[in-house]
Simulated scan of single mutants.
Amino acid sequence: MKILKFLPLAALVFITGCSSVQVASDYDSKTDFNNYKTYAFFKEGIDKTEISDLDKKRILNAIDAELTKKGMVKSANPDILINIFTKAQQRVDITQNSYYSPWGYGWGWNPYWGSTYNTVSTSVEGNLYIDVLDAKRKELVWQGVGTGYITKNREKKEARINEFVTKVLKDFPPKR
């Protein structure tokens, strides 16, 4: 009966653990990011990204919103070009669970009675890469990547994509 009290807490920890997005970024330390005020999307690169056009649109809208918050302006003659690409992999988790009872079968204590069973769960883990290229030099100057679980639920997908983009672009432009 006491175990039932802990199930909601365990479910909350599981859901919270699955919802986080891990991010990392890297950049060219010789680049002066203060010179970048305008941006555009790198169409040739984005067209090669192997996700649905709807998801591309969601990602690009989220990037637009984040860059606008940072004071950048979309332009036909940009300072930087934004490219995206994605990767997804199936993740399989196997957990071994054991249960032992000190009472065993019959009368008295029996240290060998119990059972072991495995729990198998699968999920899709995805990576969203956001590249920033210097438009004049056509060189990569900053890259951010977010790694986390992705959902197939259409209603939650936009919120999840916004979370990915917000967290990836949090450290752009880099502070020195």
Rank of each mutant, 00 (worst) to 15 (best):
K87Q: 11
D93H: 13
A88V: 04
F85E: 14
K70D: 03
K70C: 05
L81H: 03
S75Y: 03
L81D: 00
Q90Y: 07
T68M: 11
A88W: 07
V92A: 15
T95H: 07
K87Y: 08
T68F: 13
T86P: 00
K70E: 05
N83V: 02
S75A: 13
Q89S: 12
A65M: 14
K70M: 09
L81R: 06
N83Q: 11
T68V: 15
T86C: 00
E66V: 11
K87N: 08
I82N: 00
N77V: 03
L67S: 05
A65V: 11
S75C: 04
A76L: 06
K74R: 14
K69N: 12
I80M: 10
K70R: 13
L67D: 01
A65N: 08
F85P: 00
I84C: 03
K74H: 05
V92N: 13
I94R: 04
N83P: 01
K87G: 01
G71C: 10
G71K: 12
D64L: 06
V73M: 07
D64N: 15
A76E: 14
M72S: 06
T86R: 12
D64F: 06
K87H: 10
F85A: 07
Q90W: 11
D64P: 00
Q89W: 06
L81W: 01
E66Q: 15
K87P: 00
I80C: 03
P78S: 09
S75F: 04
T68L: 12
R91Q: 15
F85R: 12
K87C: 02
M72Q: 05
A65R: 14
A76F: 01
L67P: 02
N77R: 08
T95K: 15
F85N: 04
E66L: 12
A76W: 01
L67A: 06
D79T: 09
I80Y: 00
K87S: 02
D64C: 09
T95Y: 00
Q89G: 04
D93S: 15
I82V: 15
F85S: 06
S75I: 05
M72D: 02
I84T: 11
L81I: 08
I82P: 00
T95M: 09
L81N: 03
N83T: 01
I94K: 10
R91G: 06
V73N: 10
L81F: 10
K74E: 06
F85L: 06
F85D: 09
A65C: 02
V92W: 05
T86K: 09
I84F: 07
F85W: 11
A65F: 13
I82A: 03
